[in-house]
Design a protein around this nucleic acid. Structure first.
Length: 571
DNA sequence: GCCGTTTTCGGCCCGACTGTTTTCAGTCG
């Protein structure tokens, strides 16, 4: 079984950790971390690229790392890592993960007290052996014990939609202060990442000290990590971290850009600035000592002779180069969306009638809605048998006569069975406008078998959209083993469509594969998979993800009108 | 260890906060 990108990245992650503890050149460490990032976000399997592509064309991969990748792919081992592990215990990397302990301190703990694991660290701290080490004191010893106790609590990245509620509460709370002139969310939240580690809030106001004091008194704050004149950090009950940064109006745009990140985007942009003889920091763009931009983000980009780059693109995945070459995508927006093609009604496991869904969709300004109930194989959802489907088709046809401001598409979410056949006979499928075909069973097939199962399903002429293509549930269940890129290529050949399921637990396709679908010319259908009317609003989450995947309106199926859709449905 | 419109060597993003210090190193984002 060929080695996966995630495994190659894991090798380099370990090397970076151990090199850091070893006191290696920090830029060398960074090179390994850059490679981890490049490899993880690739979307293509390196083990497949390796035969016909020069790996040094990948950003951050040079001759040395290319050689090491080849070694890993060929042997499943990395001699560099094995050599490091002889000198430095590999378990030390869990000590390194503890907040407040970096490579230098971990090294001291290991050299002086032979601490190589968290239990050993805890024991030493309880015996008050750490406070006397150089660079440590009573407070750092207490902090270590505190962090060990809290480890695992609320450290998981949270879904964007959960962050959205907390963000709204802080914005409302701080905006009530009249001295606040500008306020924005920054960080991964603003980049609309599917999960976020913390929340970053940026404020400009006349009374920084007062805002800081107000901030740490928010009712959800459990513990204050840091409090300064311009920057404070707190932990909320439940474990989420929130950072507040206060900045002058004249630097607001530069700070918003800086705190929006991503870090790698910032590094690449700063490197570009240096090449132009400029310097960027959170206070502005500087030529010599003089600030030449900073009030708005657009000013900052303009100073670097770049058009505005949308926050969702700022991941150092080629957006800066695209901006320089004037080929940034014009990202799809919620306003471009003309309908929702995936919802479940009370015929099966949904909680509202077809008519209720249709009227709700019309009220949202949609032109159409697709009713996609489960098929018979999915017993737990009371999936429909052929007779049930026929009845539903009749009901929808009657409603289409009655309602004149919305088109209801006759559809089903059809199970893809273990052998790749579909769960309803063609004689029924041909009566539908389109199908969503999904995997709800046999998640654990080997990668190649799973991939071929899905391609076989696509061979059915009535297959339209592949539902939640990877099957992953965020923070709950990994994707099933499947070669998504091969599926996308197969979809391109057959005129099939990939779903971007907008349910906050799914967001499936992910951003990387949206971009690959676009490169293959495969349409993406952004759908909510609604079981309640309220779920129809998940569309915004799907649009967020699509934007992160560089999709434009023309790449998204449901930005098209009814007649154009029918052409796609006919393949 | 990577990279090059100035460079194949010598740089590599940049600043805030904390704790342990008597002027700063380490950590973090």
């Amino acid at each position: 079984m060929p080695i996966r990108n995630a495994e190659i990245a894991e090798f380099f992650k370990k090397v970076a950790d151990l090199l850091e503890i070893d006191g290696a050149n920090p830029f060398r460490v960074r090179a390994y971390r850059t490679a981890v990032r490049t490899i993880s976000s690739l979307g293509h399997e390196i083990s497949e690229l390796i035969a016909h592509k020069d790996l040094t064309n990948l950003p951050g991969i040079g001759k040395e790392l290319a050689t090491k990748i080849k070694e890993i792919v060929a042997t499943g081992r990395l001699s560099k890592l094995e050599e490091l592990e002889k000198r430095i215990p590999p378990e030390l990397h869990q000590v390194l993960k503890l907040p407040g302990l970096g490579p230098k301190k971990v090294k001291v703990l290991y050299d002086q007290l032979n601490i190589r694991s968290l239990p050993e660290l805890e024991k030493a701290a309880r015996r008050e052996k750490i406070r006397s080490l150089a660079g440590f004191g009573k407070k750092s010893e207490e902090r270590i014990l505190e962090e060990i106790e809290q480890r695992g609590q609320g450290k998981e990245r949270i879904q964007w939609i959960v962050g959205e509620k907390v963000a709204a509460s802080f914005i409302e709370y701080l905006t009530a202060q009249p001295s606040v002139k500008q306020i924005d969310m920054a960080g991964s939240f603003r980049r609309r990442q599917e999960t976020i580690g913390d929340l970053d809030i940026l404020v400009s106001c006349d009374t920084p000290a007062q805002i800081m004091a107000l901030f740490i008194r928010h009712e959800d704050v459990q513990r204050v990590i840091a409090q300064g004149n311009t920057k404070s950090s707190v932990i909320l009950r439940g474990g989420m971290q929130v950072d507040l940064r206060v900045i002058d109006s004249q630097s607001y745009g530069a700070a918003l850009h800086y705190f929006t990140g991503s870090q790698l985007h910032n590094i690449t942009l700063r490197r570009l600035a240096r090449q132009m003889g400029l310097k960027i920091n959170e206070y502005g763009v500087f030529k010599e000592e003089q600030r030449i931009a900073g009030q708005t983000e657009a000013d900052v980009f303009a100073a670097l002779k770049l058009p505005f780059i949308e926050p969702e693109l700022r991941e150092d995945r080629g957006e800066i180069q695209a901006a320089r070459q004037g080929r940034l995508p014009e990202l799809v927006t919620q306003d471009d969306i003309r309908g929702d093609l995936h919802c479940h009604t009370d015929e099966t496991d949904g909680h509202h009638s077809v008519e209720e869904f249709a009227r709700a969709a019309a009220q949202m300004g949609y032109e159409y809605i697709g009713i996609t109930n489960h098929s018979q194989h999915l017993r737990i959802a009371r999936g429909l048998d052929p007779e049930g489907v026929k009845n539903l088709i009749k009901k929808i046809e009657r409603l289409n006569q009655k309602l004149d401001d919305i088109v209801i598409f006759k559809s089903m979410e059809v199970d893809i069975l273990k052998d790749g056949t579909l769960d309803l006979p063609d004689s029924i499928l041909k009566e539908l406008d389109f199908t969503i075909c999904s995997v709800h069973s046999d998640f654990r097939l080997p990668r190649q078998t799973q991939t071929e199962r899905l391609i076989r399903a696509m061979d059915n002429p009535y297959f339209t959209i592949l539902g939640h293509p990877s099957g992953r549930l965020i923070n709950q269940r990994a994707a099933y083993a499947v070669d998504l890129q091969r599926l996308i290529a197969a979809a391109a050949e057959r005129g099939c469509i990939m779903e971007l399921n907008a349910n906050p637990d799914r967001l499936d396709l992910d951003d990387v594969h949206c971009k690959i679908a676009k490169e293959f010319g495969v349409q993406v259908a952004i759908s909510t998979d609604a079981h309640w009317l309220g779920h129809l609003s998940y569309m915004r989450l799907g649009v967020n993800q699509a934007r992160r995947g560089w999709l434009e309106a023309k790449d998204v199926l449901n930005t098209r009108g009814v007649e154009e859709l029918r052409k796609y449905f006919r393949r």
